[in-house]
């Protein structure tokens, strides 16, 4: 058995990682909650955001955290455009079509990255990447602490937008009753695109927070997508606080089951939670009724 110090440190690690997972899941849950689609291109968009962070750093020496300020609006616009110009018109409201189109988008983006950047695994190395905060017997990675804080801030901002602003109200109205909202004069297509844009902006933030400690290659998104799905389900599809708490929980479970069962089999813990939640409480912790 492990000493309490190790268990506690593993839990801290789990929470820090979980916050980043939550940030990635945020975009997914937002898009699901409003558009009712499962966005297969999520991982590929994350990968492109990570490449953007990497590129800005290598070519222009932009700090990854600074890059977020630039990339979040850019990715918002990109997401807005993709939904407005590609997914929306091509899908014509059919679920099967949306599935195919987001799948097609992910193939396109992933291979565009491959063609543009090659398949090499790249990473950013700066002194800050290796910085630690010493707290008693624990060595806590500074970039991951920043990631944790960043993730909480973004969640709070999104939550504020959704619950306190007019745009948020429109989004929620569309999520609840599309037809009714459009009768009230809400431009549903615009709301969809804004939502998709917000999801992409969240990914850009996640990319900036991840790059100091992670690496990027065209297929990197795949590593995070399954876990994001689990978090979305656990937190309740469409719920922003659900995504955050779900992310932290999953991070914790992954960390502890990885420690106790081994990293490889530890992944099973996540899927078992996933399956149990679906079978026992498919609306998740905070989800509205299905």
């Amino acid at each position: 058995m492990y000493s309490p110090t190790i268990l506690i440190e593993a839990m801290i690690n789990g929470l820090l990682t979980g916050a980043i997972y939550a940030l990635i899941a945020l975009g997914l849950t937002l898009v699901y909650g409003v558009l009712h689609i499962i966005n297969f291109a999520h991982g590929a968009i994350l990968a492109s955001a990570m490449f953007a962070v990497w590129g800005l750093n290598v070519l222009a020496g932009v700090d990854p955290y600074l890059a977020i300020l630039l990339l979040a609006p850019v990715f918002f616009c990109l997401g807005y455009g993709v939904q407005r110009l590609v997914i929306g018109p091509a899908a014509k409201g059919d679920d099967g079509n949306i599935l195919l189109i987001t799948l097609g988008l992910s193939i396109f983006i992933e291979n565009a990255l491959l063609a543009g950047f090659g398949s090499d695994t790249r990473s950013i190395s700066s002194d800050f990447s290796f910085a630690v905060v010493e707290a008693g017997p624990f060595l806590i990675s500074s970039p991951r602490l920043v990631g944790f804080a960043g993730s909480l801030i973004v969640t709070a901002i999104l939550w504020f937008i959704m619950s306190r602003t007019d745009a948020g109200k429109a989004i929620r109205a569309v999520a609840r009753e599309k037809l009714g909202a459009s009768l009230m004069g809400i431009d549903v297509g615009h709301v969809y695109a804004v939502t998709f844009g917000l999801g992409c902006a969240a990914l850009a933030v996640a990319a900036g927070l991840l790059m100091p400690t992670f690496y990027v290659n065209p297929r990197v998104g795949g590593a995070f997508v399954n876990i994001a799905f689990t978090i979305v389900v656990l937190g309740g599809m469409g719920s922003i606080p659900g995504a955050m708490i779900g992310g932290l929980l999953i991070g914790l479970v992954e960390s502890l089951s990885g420690l106790l069962l081994g990293e490889s089999l530890g992944q099973i813990g996540i899927f078992i939670i996933f399956i149990l939640v679906l079978l026992l409480k498919p609306t998740g912790l905070f989800g509205a009724k299905a």
């Binding site: 492990y2 990682t17 876990i227 960390s255 420690l259 490889s264 089999l265």
Partner: peptide
């Protein structure tokens, strides 16, 4: 013996065990 999946998202815990 510590098995890690490919791709791994985080190896902090592996290193934690190694440290102990």
């Amino acid at each position: 013996q510590i098995a890690v999946p490919t791709p791994s998202r985080d190896l902090s815990n592996v290193v934690l065990r190694l440290r102990s």
